[in-house]
Nucleic acid binder design. Sequence first.
DNA 1: TGTAATTTTTGACGCGCGTTAAGTTTTAAT
DNA 2: ATTAAAACTTAACGCGCGTCAAAAATTACA
Lengths: 343, 343
Amino acid sequence: MVQKKIRNMEEFAAVSGISRPTLSKYFNDPDSVRRSTRHKIELALKQYDYRPNVFAVNQNRRKTKNIGVVVPNLADPFFSEIGREVELACISAGYSPILLSSHGNPSQERNNLESLRSLKPAGVLLAPFGRVSDHAEIESFNKDVPVVLFDANIEGICEAFVGTDNFQSVDLIVEYLCRSGEPPCFFEMKSPTNPNANKRRQAYLESMERHGHTPHIFQAEGSEWNFEEIGSAEGGRFLSENAFKTNTVLCSNDRLAIGMLSAAFRQGRRVGHGEGCDLRIAGHDDHPFSRFTCPSLTTIAQDYAAIANRAVSTLFRILDADERLKQREETQFDGKLVMRDSA
Amino acid sequence: MVQKKIRNMEEFAAVSGISRPTLSKYFNDPDSVRRSTRHKIELALKQYDYRPNVFAVNQNRRKTKNIGVVVPNLADPFFSEIGREVELACISAGYSPILLSSHGNPSQERNNLESLRSLKPAGVLLAPFGRVSDHAEIESFNKDVPVVLFDANIEGICEAFVGTDNFQSVDLIVEYLCRSGEPPCFFEMKSPTNPNANKRRQAYLESMERHGHTPHIFQAEGSEWNFEEIGSAEGGRFLSENAFKTNTVLCSNDRLAIGMLSAAFRQGRRVGHGEGCDLRIAGHDDHPFSRFTCPSLTTIAQDYAAIANRAVSTLFRILDADERLKQREETQFDGKLVMRDSA
DNA sequence: TGTAATTTTTGACGCGCGTTAAGTTTTAAT
DNA sequence: ATTAAAACTTAACGCGCGTCAAAAATTACA
């Protein structure tokens, strides 16, 4: 069944017996044509595999069916996971996601937005760096294309933010740690670019106060993305110097915790809450590898799927209504405590 | 300095004093115009930030400046690393990489190639699943768009393949393990889809024979992408049953090894080559997390950058010459032994 | 300074599709 | 059967740029 190759919509109109404007309507929205013509078209589509030329289609449209998805670093499994969820949600809504990683480089974030501009996306889902992001650029971008932030919030910018409630989640694990042993110290990066890190520190301070304990914060030098390395080197240093005031350390995120666990192992420390253990380490994020650390890492699980879906649905609400939200929305999902062996 | 917004090349021609066809030539290849006009254009570009409309540009071109990059699973750090290297190499060559992940799903690999078709890419860099890839589809795709395979080879298909020489790398680590202790058993998935896995098994068999030892292969059930889980569950079972014939296990890849290390830890086994250790575990790939396992993982490092750069340069050689290679090329880089604490 | 080679300009057509306006057919309802 | 609404067809224009041919301008070289 060798069919004549269809070169354009004109030719497809000829073989399908449907006029070109109607076909154009159909490809724009299959439900916008009469049921019977839709059947005719789809029958013809099976015989002759024709697809509208993507570039010609988008040339005239002011908005495309593209959704930009920008994450700070795909090498971080957290973002590859949530990026995937977001991608899937976009596809099932009939949009084409374009996933861009900023490779841990804030200036790349600007580049990515810049390239997205020329792709005329209908909307953008952005997980920003935070403090080091180009706020002005993002704000200006949002004027042209609706942007929904996820994971990391930038106060007052863009249409909406979807993430995890760090105050709830940190309080949850602090409460658990206090209840089940010595109150935790807090281990983090010295100058985190990520706003979540700042919130977690704040949440730790408030939570400790609420539970009537003295907070102890330990900060690691370094500003790169190699958190494991930093957790291992700096966390290991604190450990070997016996700097921590209690036998329990809450790390600002799992990657730091993974590094610290490796340092603890090297130093022969017994980590965990069981018999013969003298150190407890906990994290935050439920990193895909946290189940396989030694010992497995007690942490907070963020609801990846919920965050991704809410971010996407919020964006689509804007796109469907074809107007911006009356008011900026912030959604924060609860984290869940994942009790494993390390604390 | 509020400049009039430029809407198209016509208007930019007006304000820059250069004719539209010359501008078109310039944007196609800046070196194709006279030096002085190039300067004029670039001067004007700084004043009025104009960019050619991507869609209009690509509508008429049969080939675009897009390069498709397809990897089986971005959630695997190996692929996010190598994907990044490939992206950077494309950008520095003036192309626009489009990174697509198949999310561990072979049928998604076909979908990705299908979507790429409509983007008329100049070339594609594909890390295929291997056995479960749609060979016919890939071969047919390669007829329209030159494809260079990397990481995983499919015999005789596409223009070229770039990867690691598994026979060299496995021999290297087998030799090391034999020299420094008991000869290794081999732990792998029962029905790996990845051709590298099969080569590594074969390489293990040959290497053991060469060194005069009896090979022992242990295979885990399961066919998913959660290698750590499988390594932990199945590898842990073999460990607890004392199934391994020697005290040394070479895992087919680091992710299996990471899982097995966690199982060994749970069982209280002392892993390593030092005093008081009764088990050695080694991996392959130098996964980003292998430095932070407990103990740190002895493994084989693949030369990510070399593979990525060679794959990209091979593709560009085809694009520049505008003709296919006379003969299919295969390049295999040597792996390097990374000695850490686990073996 | 003259001539040839190179580069640019002018003018025009085409790509494939979105979109509109006016006319025609089909459908649903009276 | 009558009528209005809904859906479709026909014809045509425009989008922004690639590309071509012929004419004009610039450069290189002797």
